[in-house]
Every structure is written in C-alpha cells, then in structure tokens.
C-alpha cells in the first residue's frame, strides 16, 4: 500500500481533545504507535479504521482518501482492542463468517482460511469452539480474521495486551510473516513489541505526536534502548 499521510487530525470528545493536530506519515511496512494509557491511541486507530470521523484534518494516500470510507474498508483488516467472538461456534465457522462479511468470494474462502490459520498457527484448533480457546489463541484468531482477504492495511489495536511471554514471541513471529508490501499499524504501550516487530514508530502523548519516523533514524546513539528513549521523551513532554 502507498504511504498514508495523516494531516492535522483533531478529535474532540466534549471539551477533551483526544487527538490534537496529529500529523505523520505511515509508510508500507510495520508501524508501531506507542503511548501511555489515555494518550489517544485507540482514538487514532478508530479514525484510521474509519469507525469514527475526525473533527478536522485529513487522511489519505496517493490513491484513496479517508473521505470515502468504503474504499479504505475494502483494503482493511482490523483487530479491535476488545476482540470477542461467538463462543459456541468453531474457529473455522468464525473465520468463515468473517470472510463472508468481508465480502470474500465463496470459492476462495476455504483456501484463505487455511492460509490465515497456518499463519497464526491455529490449524490444529480449527474445529475447537471459541469458548474453549485460551486468551492467546483468541487473540491469534482475531489477527487471523484481520488477515483474511490479504488486506493492504492491517490495524491491530493492543494485540499483545494480556498475553504471556510465549504468546508474545509467537505474535512477533506471526507479524514477521505478513506480506512485506502491506502496511501493518500496531498500537501498543509495550515498547519491546514495537522494537522487535516494527521499522517505524510514533510516540503519542496527550493526543499529540511527540516523535515519529523510522526507528533507526530517530533513536539517538546515546540511548541504549527504545524504552529509555521513550521515557526521556515522556519526561520532556511532561516538563513542557
């Protein structure tokens, strides 16, 4: 997918500004959005996923504009923060349902399901009921449905929240398998996830982007880790 340009996006709930003139460029690859709780990550995700419209500002690529949500949704795979699924249906049935709702052609659906199950390492669980899956598996199922149809833009909202270390490693491996041409936008407050998975990053604090760009470019040489740098940024932001 082409680069996504977010230009002066502002979102306001009552008197609270959830997003305040957010501007950044999201290039193809893995993009991590980092920020503390309440920074506005989910709001930005929801704006990008065309669930809500920003109060002002624009989002676009060279070919499509977020003014036409259907064009975006056609290329979108989305995992919301609170992902749930009908508990009494099987993994296979759940993915089939998602595929139909996404508008995938009937003949390609079985192959697509096989593909995403393999990617998410859920092939053995395909006949299990959703209620019998572990938390990590449910999360992987969420990612699997987001990957259905090979979307060009994949938005994952807090995909690793509440996962144990083993599942998180598995998640990172899974992200690595995603098509290199697709844009994967990950929102998280766990810096290490971004550090290992993403090549781009944006720091969000109180609705504002305080730093964004390629990780290798923005990370100062004197900083040992991304986490240290992030802590410094937050400290500076609070100081201002």
């Amino acid at each position: 997918m082409e680069s996504i340009v977010v230009d002066n996006v502002t979102m306001q709930y009552g008197i609270t500004k959830a997003l305040d003139n957010v501007s950044m460029q999201i290039n193809p690859g893995k993009f991590g959005l980092v920020g503390p709780n309440g920074a506005g990550k989910t709001t930005l995700i929801r704006v990008l996923a065309t669930i809500i419209k920003p109060k002002c500002g624009t989002i676009s690529t060279s070919k499509i504009s977020w003014e036409n949500p259907n064009e975006v949704r056609d290329k979108l795979g989305y995992l919301p923060q609170n992902f749930g699924m009908y508990p009494y249906i099987s993994v296979d049935e759940a993915l089939n349902h998602s595929a139909v709702l996404k508008g995938l052609r009937k003949p390609v659906i079985p192959d697509e399901i096989d593909r995403v199950l393999e990617m998410t390492n859920l092939s053995e669980q395909r006949d299990k009921k959703v209620k019998n899956l572990s938390g990590g598996m449910v999360r992987r199922l969420g990612i699997a449905q987001a990957l259905l149809g090979n979307p060009e833009l994949i938005i994952l909202d807090e995909p690793t929240a509440g996962l144990d270390p083993e599942e998180r490693v598995r998640f990172r491996e899974m992200i690595g398998k995603i098509d290199k041409n697709a844009t994967v936008f990950i929102s998280t407050h766990i810096i290490s996830d971004v550090e290992t998975c993403c090549d781009q990053i944006a720091f969000l604090h109180e609705g504002r982007i305080i730093q964004s760009g390629n990780i290798s470019e923005i990370l100062p040489r004197d900083s040992d880790t991304l986490e240290d740098y992030y802590m410094e940024l937050i400290k500076d932001a609070k100081g201002q």
Binding site: T50, I51, R73, Y78, P80, N82, F83, G84, M85, P87
Partner: peptide, 18 residues
C-alpha cells in the same frame, strides 16, 4: 446476551450493512 462476546462484530458491522 450473545452480543457481549461480539464486540469485534460491533465494529465490523458498523462498516456496512451487515
């Protein structure tokens, strides 16, 4: 009551007629 386990669909449904 099944709705409560389907927040994903809540979001996805808002995309279209579904």
């Amino acid at each position: 009551g099944m709705e409560h386990n389907c927040s994903y669909f809540d979001v996805m449904m808002s995309f279209n007629m579904a």
